[in-house]
């Protein structure tokens, strides 16, 4: 008698209590599910792909992607990579260093390293605010750096152990872009969205800037892999399943032979 029966009674009453005092059920956001893949295997595959070949992935995040043909995207990507590398060389010569933190300082950038973004967007790695503030969120960096201690991963990254340097270089490029906005390809290249007589709306193409920023980060840090692989690496720190999904999505953008090449 006693406790056993009380447990039994509680169990029987639970559905009734839940019905009366349970929360109002709405549609809950459920993340799509993917099979978790080992990080080193994904990075190994992604590291084989050059920055320019990530163009479809880059453009998939561009709001006006639908207006472009695949050839257009590819040729823009090529020019963007060229532009990013050129500016990396230019900046390196100008300040006679490859050390991105020194470059950022000399350019007059205010680089901050908070742990988290203050807008509670947890899966955000870095931001560039006009006019000259770069914020790099260290929580994400620390998680990523921990993976780099793994031998197989550090072998893929060829000894680069500071993710934050790559990220910083990317954001520095956005500052450089603003500085040279009159002449730099990423800012001068525009696409006409519409025109009615003399009235028209020309837009920059965000994906071009992003690809160039990746190429810039790759060149100035002398990386042996495309910085695009960091997307999967950093998401993995928060959610291995989501990172695996992202990996699958990215792979879907490559040509069939892309991965094996």
């Amino acid at each position: 008698m006693g406790s056993m029966d009380r447990e039994e009674f509680k169990r029987l009453m639970k559905p009734i209590a839940d019905g009366l005092f349970g929360k109002q059920q709405g549609p809950r956001y459920e993340k799509p599910h993917y099979t978790v893949r080992p990080l080193n295997e994904m990075l190994k595959e992604l590291a084989k792909v050059e920055t320019v070949d990530y163009y479809r992935y880059a453009f998939s995040r561009d709001p006006i992607n639908g207006k472009f043909t695949d050839e257009q995207r590819k040729s823009w990507a090529k020019e963007a990579v060229k532009c990013g590398k050129e500016y990396a060389q230019k900046i390196r010569q100008q300040y006679s260093t490859s050390e991105i933190q020194t470059i950022a300082k000399k350019l007059g950038l205010d680089v901050r390293y908070p742990d988290f973004p203050n807008k509670t967007d947890r899966v955000l790695f870095a931001e560039f605010h006009e006019p000259n503030i770069v914020e790099i969120y260290m929580d994400a960096m620390k998680k990523a750096d921990k993976f780099l201690k793994d031998e197989s991963i550090s072998a893929i990254m060829k000894g680069h152990t500071k993710v934050s340097k790559i990220i910083l270089a990317h954001e520095v490029f956005h500052y450089v872009e603003e500085k040279y906005s009159k002449e730099i390809f990423t800012q001068t290249e525009k696409t006409r969205l519409w025109s009615i007589g003399p009235v028209h709306n020309d837009s920059k193409v965000i994906a071009i800037s992003e690809i160039a920023a990746m190429a810039f980060a790759e060149e100035i840090n002398e990386l042996a892999f495309s910085p695009y692989i960091l997307d999967v690496l950093m998401v993995y720190g928060y959610d291995p399943e989501e990172a695996s999904g992202l990996y699958e999505e990215i792979c879907g953008y490559f040509d069939k032979e892309g991965l094996q090449a």
Binding site: P32, Y34, S60, K119, D121, V123, L124, F125, A126, E127, F128, H129, E130, I167, H170, E171, H174, S209, A213, D231, V232, M234, V235, E242, A243, G245, L246, E248, E249, G252
Partner: peptide, 17 residues
């Protein structure tokens, strides 16, 4: 008041392509 010109974030997307 909250000008963030470039943010580096990543999230997987279900392709609607």
């Amino acid at each position: 008041r909250n000008k963030a010109r470039h943010a580096w974030a990543a999230q997987s997307r279900t392709p609607q392509a």
